[in-house]
């Protein structure tokens, strides 16, 4: 009984829950909309978030990542290979163009500790929570 109560309390203060709720609400407003390029996944633990995005064929050096407070913006572009004379496309399904994607997190990001890795066309962005933002434990003294 106590544990279920605690669990409910825990989920109440969990900022990720509110992010989920927000996203669900947003999804409800725009039904059946596919995500913008690039699609992102957000992984979370208590003190940090990991954003992954599939960016195949994009030079990692050309990806621009900027941080402002609680949000992170990814910007890059992918150039098309135009068919020359005597060449013709049978299929052209891959995505081309410029993109800019902003992801809002429920806390202030510690810009100094952000880590970005790119491997096999997948971007992994670790976004730790700022130290001063972390919840503090308060010990109760007994007299």
């Amino acid at each position: 009984m106590l544990w279920t109560e605690l669990d409910r309390m825990g989920s109440f203060i969990d900022p990720w829950r509110s992010l989920e709720r927000l996203n669900r609400a947003a999804a409800g407003l725009v039904p059946a909309a596919a995500p913008e390029f690039p699609a992102v996944n957000v992984w979370a633990d208590g003190d940090s978030a990991m954003v992954t995005a599939e960016l195949p064929g994009i030079d990692p050096k050309a990806v621009d990542i900027s941080l402002t407070g609680k949000s992170v913006t990814l910007r890059a572009s992918r150039q098309p290979d135009d068919a020359k004379d005597g060449e013709s496309y049978h299929r052209r399904e891959r995505w081309y163009g410029q993109f800019s994607r902003t992801i809002d997190l429920p806390y202030v990001i510690d810009a100094a500790k952000v880590d970005a890795r790119f491997s096999r066309g997948v971007l992994h962005l670790t976004l730790p929570r700022a130290e001063e933002e972390k919840p503090k434990k308060i010990a109760i003294k007994t007299e």
Binding site: G86, Y89, E93, V122
Partner: peptide, 19 residues
């Protein structure tokens, strides 16, 4: 997603396979 380009002497298949 793929692009298939036919050239004079060959066919070029480009596929996005992230990960």
């Amino acid at each position: 997603d793929v692009d298939i380009l036919e050239r004079k002497d060959d066919i070029v298949v480009t596929a996005d396979l992230p990960g």
